[in-house]
Design a binder for these strands. Structure first.
Lengths: 238, 238
DNA sequence: CGGCATATTGAAAACTATCAACGGCAGTGG
DNA sequence: CCACTGCCGTTGATAGTTTTCAATATGCCG
């Protein structure tokens, strides 16, 4: 835990402010947020932010890096429920019950702004603007949670996943033409609920068709239409 | 649209109050809800409550009956995102943008309490207790949205679905030993993302093994352990 | 009663997982 | 520095699951 001040981090000058709580807030509201959020948690790659079933004391806003959220099922498989990127809020689904529903670990070196939950809820009582923003974030999270539930075949899942993550990354780096996937193919398979060999085969297929390129986790989408299309096509035949 | 007063409906005497906004509220807060929520919408079977992409003016709380929430994909398939039962709030995910993300239709004769969104958000600003309750409901909805994302095989999906819906119904009729599924097997298949023949085959298998009984949409679970177990087993061989 | 939606079952085809083997790359320790 | 180890990515062959196509019941509603 470090101080935001010491690291020169603040909501008003944050590069992902437009995606986070501070979006569209006036200076006085930003001030209230800055008063509340004074600490930053720094995680090394693979380090844990929280563990399933432990008490929830804070929400976290990703400042830099990325995290995976998961649980372990009866068979011992890691079921990934979400990936989080800068600007995303972690822990909202666990507010009810004040207990972490999932474990969260860092996919890379990651920094997170610490939002003490009780004081934050107090703030929501007193600040209608921040409340509105938080309700919007809740709503957007639900939209996001639904968004991948809908694809059926492995092809669709991969296409939807790639397009979805691609757009989320472009929100963060609008000028960029490529995107770095922080997660492994195994993570992707655990997120989509398909075998990792299948993930790899579909990636290989998309690369062979020059629809995407992917090397060392750097992803480019060359033909977005073809990628959307491929969701509707057959399992890759060689 | 009918008046709640005329139908003798009110939050304080509602049978699903413990599942809805009014849960654990004191009389004065209930009064505020009753002031806000004055209308009931009555739907016949298959009638629509809302249509995708139209403006959102109200949230709805199911009073009686049940609904399905869905969208139509590029292929023309109906993708069901949720089922709603008495006490559930419909529309939360569409608050951001004030536009219906999904269409909602009634699975049977259904009555819904009408919650005007703007006035409701005002109320949240002024009533910390109701705000807390609403945030809990948001959180619970996210937990719910995640809960089925995790099963991989068709067997698991069906088992999880049956157990999940069974428990939800028992929350509403604690004394009952059976449950009426309002949705068709086709609906279930569109919800789980599997072919409806597969749904039917697995139902047949579970019936043959006497793990459940299911006739005319009346479901009984005879052996809950076996049902949980069956999620981990092979595709039904005859 | 007729007509249409829903439910049921079989057989074949398609898709996906599993098992197995190998290459590459990064980090570790000698 | 280099071998060693382990993780990640890649591909083939095979087995298993699920969809698709087709045909036949069953039940509901006017």
């Amino acid at each position: 835990m470090k101080s935001r001040l010491a690291l020169n981090i603040g909501c008003s000058k944050c590069s992902v402010r437009h995606l986070c709580l501070a979006s569209n807030l006036e200076d006085k509201d930003i001030l209230e947020l800055n008063n509340l959020i004074t600490l930053v948690k720094c995680l090394a790659k693979n380090e844990h932010l929280s563990t399933m079933n432990t008490p929830l004391q804070n929400l976290y806003a990703v400042y830099k890096g990325s995290c995976k959220e998961y649980w372990i099922n009866e068979k011992g498989d890691e079921c990934i429920t979400n990936f989080y990127f800068p600007g995303d809020i972690i822990g909202i689904e666990s507010v009810e019950g004040r207990k972490h529903l999932f474990s969260v670990s860092a996919l890379e070196e990651t920094r997170l702004c610490v939002i003490p939950i009780e004081r934050f809820l107090e703030l929501l009582n007193n600040n209608p603007t921040i409340l509105r923003r938080f309700l919007s974030i809740n709503s957007l999270k639900m939209q996001n949670d639904q968004s991948l539930k809908m694809s059926i075949t492995a092809n669709e899942k991969i296409s939807d996943f790639l397009l979805h993550i691609y757009h989320r990354m472009l929100e963060r780096h609008p000028d960029s033409k490529e995107v770095r996937l922080a997660m492994s193919q195994l993570d992707i398979s655990n997120y989509l609920g398909i075998a990792y060999e299948t993930v790899n085969r579909i990636f290989s297929h998309l690369k062979r068709k020059r629809i995407i390129s992917l090397k060392n986790k750097i992803l480019k989408i060359h033909d977005q239409n073809a990628l959307e299309e491929s969701g509707r096509l057959d399992y890759p035949k060689l």
